[in-house]
Write a protein that binds this DNA or RNA. Structure first.
Lengths: 104, 104
DNA sequence: CCTATATTTCTAAATATATCGAAATATATG
DNA sequence: CATATATTTCGATATATTTAGAAATATAGG
């Protein structure tokens, strides 16, 4: 899945806000900083959980997660009242390769 | 060299603009897209070279490279009329690790 | 010192982003 | 259906970013 420079820039933009980066890191680590991971399904957390201790309004949280989703980094799916979120491992792996030298 | 979430977000922000990302990629690849690498010192290119074919004003180019430098991704040093630029390999390697799962 | 080239600084305008609160929607359950 | 909880949409505002052009600065070479 080859990406254009613009698409990759979109992904980095999604991670360029400290709040969004924290949300992303929580999904990557599968648990809030300093806490033990406890989610229903492996690697998935609902929107509300992701905003814990981040001191942002629910509407802002929703907006940020939508941005991460739009950029292709995070997938979402409603499950009852909640909406589960998880990182797309393939996309994340591709991003990691961006920082390997000698890449073509 | 441990970085805060804010510092890392700054780095991603530096890469969130397509023009800046292109500049960064040229430094990473050490040559313009589709061309053979030809720089004085390994991995270094001057400010002017980095903007070739990017269709941006010199002032804009200078601004973007300064942003990459401020974020810690790119180092710069004047050499005569030119200013050489090169990526900080340590910082880039650290960024790459951000996308490895299971990181603590 | 004068000129040419490279780069930066400053200023300004257009556009984009971050954030909130209020209202709307979705779902579960009594 | 009424209510409670979770999330999203909408509208507004403050702030930040992108970019260019003009002027300033740096360096090399006559």
């Amino acid at each position: 899945m080859i990406k254009t420079t613009v698409q990759v820039a979109e992904m980095f933009k999604a991670l360029s806000n400290p709040n969004r980066l924290n949300i992303f890191l929580r999904l990557m680590n599968c648990c809030a900083p300093g806490t033990v991971c406890s989610v229903d399904e492996a690697g998935k957390r609902c929107v509300g959980d992701l905003g814990a201790d981040l001191n942002i309004a629910p509407s802002t949280l929703s907006h940020h997660i939508k941005e991460l989703n739009r950029a292709g980094l995070v997938r979402m799916q409603r499950r009852g009242q909640h909406v589960d979120c998880w990182v797309d491992p393939v996309v994340v792996e591709e991003l990691g390769r961006f920082f390997e030298p000698g890449r073509k």
